[in-house]
Amino acid sequence: MKQKTAVQVDDLTVAYNYKPVLWDIDLEIPEGVLMAIVGPNGAGKSTLIKAILGILKPIAGSVSIYGKPYEVQRKQVAYVPQKGSVDWDFPTTALDVVMMGTYGSLGWIKRPRQKEKKAALEALEKVGMLPFKNRQISQLSGGQQQRIFLARALVQDASIYFMDEPFQGVDATTEIAIINILKELRKAGKTVVVVHHDLQTVPEYFDWVTFLNVKKIATGPVKDIFNDDNLTKTYGINYKVSIQE
């Protein structure tokens, strides 16, 4: 049985200056996978996500979500940015941040109401942050802030989730809590794409993987392609990962 394609990337090239950050990327992400994007620093992992989401303008190439351009499929897609990309001293509460996830479906001008608040509270509950709903966001720990970001994406009730390093700077408890939620999303038929740094946990957490280093090195099921050969090609050093044990 052939899986539906959730995200299709064709000939994507992105450059900040003269040097390309991403070069001619073709990528097909099947529906329902939990996929890691791995690669060294500066490989363009975050850039790939940002280009797919239209935050960055590519020099060339196209992206389609379920066969249609991203612009018309926005509501199918949710984004969890890197935690460090915002100022956590912003005067707002945890609940308020999660409510922002409803702004997209509300559109311009319309204010969130009871229905949106309920959805936000449910998402907070899911990530175990309900007791902190009225907490000023700077008074949350790094792991809690990450959960808030995840809850904000959950509120969007999308089919595809893009997450930029959700495990960075979080403790083991939060990491497990987050990965369990991601696995639940996959069980519900959602597609989850995660920029990931910890190679050791790839086989345990993910079923699909993309190796990236400016160019796409490989993409496919973890059990088929997560091997020393691809790791060496991606990281440039003789990489030995002891996953076969």
């Binding site: 935050i55 926005r74 940015p81 990309s85 559109g107 969130p112």
Partner: peptide, 22 residues
């Protein structure tokens, strides 16, 4: 008052606001 929600999300997380279609 009219664009309160939009101002707020732009101030807090511009990239995210973009992905929501603003």
């Amino acid at each position: 008052l009219l664009f309160w929600k939009e101002f707020k999300i732009l101030l807090f997380d511009k990239d995210y606001a973009k992905t929501l279609g603003f």
